[in-house]
Amino acid sequence: MRQLKRWGPGLLLVSPSIILVGVFVYGLIGRNIWTSLGRRTDYVTDRVLNPGGYLNYVQLLSDPRYHHALWNLLVLTVVFVAGTMFFGLLWALLLEKGVTAEGVFRSILLLPMAVSFIAAGVVWRWLLSPAQGADQAIGLNQLFLKLGMPGLQSAWWSDPGPFAMAAMAVPAIWQLSGYVMALFLAGFRGISDDQREAARVDGATEWRIYRHILFPQLSPVALSALIIVGHMSMKMFDLIYSIAGSNSYTAEVPATLMWIQLFPQSDPIAAATNATVLLTIVALVVIPYLVHTHRSERGDR
């Protein structure tokens, strides 16, 4: 009873959140899965639209259009994550030792994060226009021509090739590299100078200090940045909607396909199925990460 009196209040304080998260996250996920198992036929022609049960998932997962969307998501995620990690780390490295006007540099590099994806999409849509050549080029292609670098022109995400979606990662990298920079910067600054000084006294080069002292300590930061940025890619909808419009085959990913399933196609069951698969993909990456941090914290304690 004394035990209960000790931790009881804590549980009580957290209980509203537990209930809210329980309902809004787990309850609704459950409801969504339930919806995804529904069966529906066209009331006029009796055509089976959604077969019901696990067959809905079979139907979705065997659809070539869905494969195309998944492939796009993969390309987008890989490029986006690699890009933000690269630039975030680069900028953090450039800034972490302290430079004049550091505040200015830092603020500007962090600025894109303040802009919403929808707002950014409005201007990036123009920037990433696929027309090339002096007659037609606008946006970045036009800029490259003006700067005398016509070879840099590209059809960007409208390119019919399989890796076109990589171009869609460019605005996303632009927006979120600053966040990764902030994480790494905070990470660097959290490591006391003494370690570096001690290493320098021992005669270590700057590069070896980074490699053997600093980077290993930053690996938790890197990992959490990786997971956060990676899962943002899966959810990405606003940016693509804003740049490619609401019905673009070339730039389709599961999230935009879901919008089409729900609204123009009025197929909530397929949309629910799509959403559940998306959740599963995210879970496959996130759950191991959460278990890992849970265990390592248990270990620390």
Binding site: L28, K235, A255, P268, A271, L279, V282, A283, V286, L290
Partner: peptide, 16 residues
């Protein structure tokens, strides 16, 4: 379990 809620794609709960 809270943390998992942070990572879910919101599409997964949007319909209900």
């Amino acid at each position: 379990m809270f943390l998992f809620g942070m990572f879910i794609p919101y599409q997964a709960v949007m319909i209900p």
